[in-house]
């Protein structure tokens, strides 16, 4: 390599600098800064969304992030991310932690570390009644809408390889396109679909949520690879929330009877960071 080119040499020095800082201990950095930057979606009710009254980002993911910031004794700064930008932003160090409806799967383990599983949901399809679709395989050859860069598109392709998938930047845009009749169905995590369905109001009669799960999605917080100290604090915080019953309270606050989701039971506990697939 020819280093006589000053521009190239400068760029290499910059790359070395960036790579160098990325190797420092992140937990120590967070404490030194007095701030933890957490990446959230802000568009996915009830995990993280903008409260129309206060204009602030709230939700289940946000409350977990708050608990971790409190445990660390630092200020919490939320950063809103697009679904497809989550893992790249974490890898490049622009956020310290992801609390962004992030599915934990084996493929992603090569890229990021995951906390204990914080939620388990299935991925489902909501369809327009006028599409006459009553089961997932009938989506073959039909237009199905979802968000870019999540697990929704790969899961749908696995279930229905011939579906015509069209993806958007946010789940909200994909759902609007479904309401306008631009596709037969829309794929998302079950809890998000239930929240969207609740918002439809009288138009609910035109839509059906298909009963089958496309997949089971364990959601977790995302931590940059090779940061065991930060992962330990995050997991400890989650374990304490579970032990004190606070985690269950949070579950019912965002998914229980008073929410749009109306779950009556909590089918999981925050205890493991292992996934099956």
């Amino acid at each position: 390599m020819n280093l006589r080119n000053p521009l190239l040499a400068g760029m290499l020095a910059l790359v070395a600098l960036v790579v160098g800082t990325a190797h420092a201990d992140q937990l120590a950095d967070i404490k030194k800064k007095g701030e933890i930057v957490v990446g959230v979606l802000g568009t996915d009710e009830p995990n993280s969304f903008v409260d129309p009254k206060t204009r602030e980002i709230v939700g289940y993911d946000v409350d977990l992030a708050k608990a971790i910031a409190k445990k660390l004794g630092v200020k919490l700064t939320l950063k809103q991310l697009a679904v497809a930008a989550r893992i790249p932003e974490l890898e490049q160090g622009r956020v310290d932690l992801l609390a962004a409806s992030l599915t934990h799967n084996k493929e992603r383990e090569a890229k990021v570390d995951f906390s204990l599983t914080t939620f388990i949901t299935g991925q489902k399809v909501i369809v327009r009644k006028d599409s006459n679709v009553t089961a997932v395989p009938q989506l073959a050859g039909k237009k199905v809408l979802t968000v870019k860069g999540g697990t929704q598109e790969p899961n749908l392709r696995k279930a229905v390889p011939t579906a015509d998938v069209v993806t958007f930047e946010t789940t909200g845009q994909a759902f609007v396109a479904l309401q306008q009749g631009k596709g037969a169905g829309y794929v998302n995590d079950e809890v998000s679909i239930l929240a969207d369905y609740a918002k439809l109001g009288p138009a609910q009669k035109d839509f059906v949520i298909l009963p089958e799960n496309l997949s089971i999605e364990p959601l977790a917080l995302g931590i940059r690879k090779g940061e065991p100290a930060l992962k330990r604090v995050v997991d400890d915080t989650l374990r304490e929330l579970e032990k004190s019953g606070e985690a269950e309270k949070l579950f019912f606050k965002w998914y229980g009877n008073d929410s749009k989701i109306k779950f009556h039971a909590r089918p999981f506990k925050i205890e493991s960071d292992k996934v099956d697939s």
Binding site: A84, P88, A110, K111, G149, E153
Partner: peptide, 13 residues
């Protein structure tokens, strides 16, 4: 669109 799709399928951005 396709580049982003390949990226999410392979993580080879």
């Amino acid at each position: 669109y396709q580049a982003a799709k390949v990226e999410s399928a392979t993580f080879r951005s």
